[in-house]
Design a protein around this nucleic acid. Structure first.
Length: 597
RNA sequence: GCCGACGUAGCUCAAUUGGCAGAGCAAGCGCCUUGUAAGCGCUAGGUUAUGGGUUCGAGUCCCUUCGUCGGCUCCA
């Protein structure tokens, strides 16, 4: 779905317009630093464009305003975008001072051993407007005047490595946005503002769900009683569901001998994501970054397994520790301590497809329950880089099994090369947060490799030892990340079953507190999470407080209610129900909870 | 980790060219006894993230460290 949309976008006028705006930006920057601007690449992106530059100094926000101003002047010149073709030699001359462009030219010329390019040398094309010529495939709009100068804005500057490789030079990337009309620009900027309001970091603070502290460390969230209530609900839900699906729960602690990770392959492939070792009398231990070696070891320690026992599904809510680089931590969506609802399914090769299908159904049920529909499935396959464990035959059969299970399931998916885990291919469920960043949530991975490395076996029908296949599966991925995305998904207004406080009782005056206390006791006996607001503020203030906290029900009680033994129920939508008896209200909550809301 | 920006009370933010650190909300106390989104008053709250430097004088200028944010890279 998203791919189709992008496909259309790349042929759209808006795409050409943004691409052209990037060229105009590059001209303005080159004029700001004559002879000292190295231009890299400047493509259109979703909602805008960027251009990467190597410059003698850092750009400031004031620079952006000046550049915008100059861009508007260039636009007003109505300069034509002229396409021209050039030979490799002409291109080299044209961009003799531009190291990044020269690198691109050599690639287009097929000089770098790129076989595809050598077989089919691409035509080198330039696009020129006014004084600026770029090495560019196009297409562009007719002339600069077709860019609406009032619907254009440069947003920010960020660092970006040339070609995305951290061994390369750090360039300055200028992000901008461009639209056809001022209204579209305003709408876009408004949406950015709205997204910020929904940001889980902001809402999490407002709702009092979690904190970070310099005293504990970066990327190590602390959950308040309310935050932990939500976590607990999330875990309980998945635990019960997994039990229903035939999973068994295990527990394998937090520390593991480093030696195990050498055997599993994690040490070689995953070391930089692990916290440094702890040494005990020359034996190194590591905080668990993953559960698979522990679960596989448990499988082995439990004795000989018959094929009749398989599939065995070991699930665990495990806190893992990953040494993320400091600059890549982000709220709850990227942390250093995370709770994974992890599971390892030990099965025979013949069971892979049906087990994959079962896991797929489980995940779909969970995402549906969370009212999650905005996600896509990525089939992540092995790339050419060398981080993958070697065994071509097993890789190919794993990839084939995954693909056919996905095909059978009828689920929409797209393929991405080079995104596989080091031990096997995987199907990842990707969701976007409010700022448009995509996060991996659920995942199912096929592993034909670790079980053999760790010496797992089962006795087959033929009486011989065989190596089981292991499916790695996480439903919500990590509780922290999933919660972060959920906060944004619900804009903080959790469904009743998840809400940390489900109802707040609001007495109108002090003389109603005793009656409210009785209500509180009755509701708590029914296992509802209810609070009594007996503070000295007015009822109006208490209602406002509860609204801001997005509490599902506000139960107001004064003389009328006390006399009739009822409560006045207000929903967070603002809707007021007439006086309800306790039984009526309980029936409402039971009905709501049963519907999964 | 890298590039850039930022860091003032629990929260949201002020503080002119370097010249006495302030407000609202929250908190505590008191008054009011309230009918569906903020009643009123008083009090307290700060080594301006941290350590150093420049200066007669630094929230403001320079450097260090820590943290946060936007990206890059990496990932659940």
């Amino acid at each position: 779905m998203a791919e189709q949309k992008e496909g259309r976008y790349e042929e759209s006028e808006l795409y050409r317009l943004r691409h052209s705006a990037a060229h105009v930006l590059a001209q303005a920057v080159m004029e700001m630093f004559p002879g000292k601007t190295q231009i890299a690449i400047g493509p259109p992106i979703e909602d805008g464009f960027y251009y990467d530059f190597g410059l003698p100094r850092s750009l400031t926000l004031e620079d952006l305003r000046k550049l915008e101003k100059r861009m508007r002047q260039i636009i007003a010149g109505k300069h034509e975008f002229a396409r021209s073709e050039a030979s490799v030699e002409q291109a080299r001359q044209q961009f003799a001072q531009q190291e990044y462009k020269l690198e691109l030219i050599e690639e287009l010329a097929g000089g770098d051993g790129d076989e595809a390019a050598q077989l089919q040398p691409q035509a080198i094309t330039f696009y020129t407007h006014d004084t600026f010529t770029d090495l560019c495939r196009g297409p562009h709009i007719g002339h600069t005047g077709q860019i609406n100068p009032a619907a254009l804005k440069l947003l920010n500057v960020a660092g970006a490595y040339w070609r995305g490789d951290e061994n390369n030079a750090m360039l300055q990337r200028v992000y901008g946005t461009a639209w056809r009309t001022v209204d579209e620009l305003k709408q876009h900027l408004w949406q950015l503002e709205e997204a910020k309001k929904r940001d889980h970091r902001k809402l999490g603070m407002q709702l009092g769900l979690f904190h970070f502290s310099v005293d504990v460390g970066p990327g190590l969230p602390l959950f308040t009683p309310k935050g932990e209530t939500i976590r607990h609900q999330m875990e309980t839900y998945v635990r019960e569901l997994q039990t229903r699906y035939g999973y068994q729960h295990v527990w394998t602690g937090h520390l593991v001998k480093e030696e195990l990770y050498r055997r599993s392959g994690h040490y070689q492939n995953y070391r930089e994501s692990m916290f440094p070792p702890m040494l005990d009398e020359n034996v190194a231990f590591r905080l668990k970054p993953m559960n698979c070696p522990s679960h596989m070891t448990l499988f082995r320690e439990m004795g000989r397994h018959s094929y009749r026992e398989l599939p065995l599904r070991f699930a665990e809510f495990a806190t893992l520790y990953r040494y993320e680089k400091s600059g890549e931590l982000t709220g709850l969506t990227r942390v250093r301590s995370l709770t994974q609802d992890d599971c390892h399914i030990f099965c025979t090769p013949a069971q892979v497809e049906s087990e994959f299908a079962l896991a797929l159904r489980l995940i779909q049920e969970v995402l549906q329950h969370y009212r999650f529909s905005d996600y896509r499935v990525r089939l992540s396959l092995r790339g050419e880089e060398g981080k993958y464990l070697q065994d071509d035959e097993k890789w190919l059969s794993a990839q084939a099994a995954l693909r056919s299970a996905l095909d059978v399931s009828g689920i929409d998916y797209y393929t991405e090369i080079g995104e596989a885990a080091f031990y096997g291919p995987k199907a990842d469920f990707m969701a976007r947060d409010v700022l448009g960043r995509e996060w991996q949530l659920s995942t199912i991975q096929v592993d034909f490799i670790q079980p053999a490395r760790l010496g797992l076996t089962y006795i087959g029908e033929d009486g011989q030892e065989h190596t089981p296949v292991v499916l790695h599966r996480a439903v919500t991925g990590s509780t922290e990340r999933f919660l972060g995305v959920l906060i944004e998904h619900y804009a903080g207004a959790f469904p009743l079953w998840l809400a940390p406080v489900q109802a707040v009782i609001i007495p109108i005056t002090d003389r109603h507190v005793e009656y409210c206390q009785q209500l509180l006791n009755s509701l708590q006996e029914q296992r509802l999470r209810v609070e009594l607001d007996a503070g000295s503020e007015r009822m109006n203030a208490k209602i406002r407080k509860a609204q801001v906290q997005k509490i599902p029900y506000m139960l107001v009680a004064g003389d009328r209610e006390q006399q009739t033994g009822t409560i006045s129920v207000r929903l967070r939508s603002g809707e007021e129900l007439k006086a309800q008896t306790l039984e009526q209200f309980l029936a409402l909550t039971r009905k709501t909870l049963a519907a999964g809301d």
